[in-house]
């Protein structure tokens, strides 16, 4: 479906790869997707998406510790259709657990791009908003939405799991209203996001878009 396209203006350069590796990766651009033309169908799809949120089990910072209790008897996020998923291909929600160091940011981008749209990002804690207590650190990014589109912020240091559950319910409301279009936003402003990412990630040795 997304084979290598011919080298036109509209393909990605993949300049981080060696010549040999260039043959192995796709250089097609991601595309934005329109909602279904019939509103009732799109609403129904959004209802299904909101009630079946599969969270990628990738702990990206100290806030990842708040994800574990969600599945226990005390909070039981299964009630809201939330489940953990070990592979990015099958998950639809990415919880950024607190600060994102530059090293982790590279993995976050790889995982995010491998997720299938529509996909949603929850930024947990104050660090993705303005850097929090790591505001002057040499290896964390301060404003996370410069690098990936964020659908919902939950601030605090650290927010407790109750707040995360409340945030997930808030995300469900937003999805049902059709307001969560982060994946499309990422595609539309792809060059801007990519240049921001490349500014902080010095050893860029992966394709420009990880299909």
């Amino acid at each position: 479906m997304f084979k290598k396209t011919l080298n036109t203006e509209d393909t990605l350069k993949n300049s981080g790869l060696t010549d040999e590796e260039q043959q192995l990766f796709s250089n097609a651009r991601p595309q934005a997707y329109e909602p279904y033309p019939i509103k009732a169908v799109e609403d129904f799809a959004n209802w299904a998406r909101a009630n079946s949120l599969w969270i990628l089990a990738f702990g990206t910072g100290c806030g990842a510790i708040e994800l574990r209790p969600l599945m226990t008897a005390r909070f039981d996020a299964n009630r809201f259709g939330v489940a953990g998923r070990p592979t990015p291909r099958q998950s639809s929600v990415f919880v950024i657990g607190g600060y994102a160091s530059v090293k982790t940011l590279k993995r976050i981008i790889r995982s995010y791009e491998q997720m299938q749209g529509p996909k949603f990002v929850i930024a947990l804690g104050i660090c993705p908003v303005n850097g929090g207590m790591y505001f002057d650190s040499y290896n964390t990014v301060n404003q996370f939405d410069q690098y990936l589109p964020v659908d919902l912020y939950i601030t605090g240091c650290m927010p407790r799991p109750e707040v995360l559950v409340a945030g997930i319910m808030e995300l469900q409301k937003k999805i049902k209203a059709g307001e969560c279009n982060g994946a499309n936003l990422y595609v539309e402003n792809f060059d801007w996001y990519k240049s921001n990412q490349k500014k902080v990630i010095k050893n860029w040795d992966m394709p420009d878009y990880n299909w």
Binding site: Y33, A48, N51, D76, N78, R79, S92, Q116, G117, W211
Partner: peptide, 30 residues
Amino acid sequence: IAKVQGRIGIPYRQPFINILKNFFKRTAIS
């Protein structure tokens, strides 16, 4: 199983919603 673990567990409609959601995904890589 959820009751054994002291939880409420998924609603009965959850497997149906999961399947619907997967069919409603916008992208699919082959």
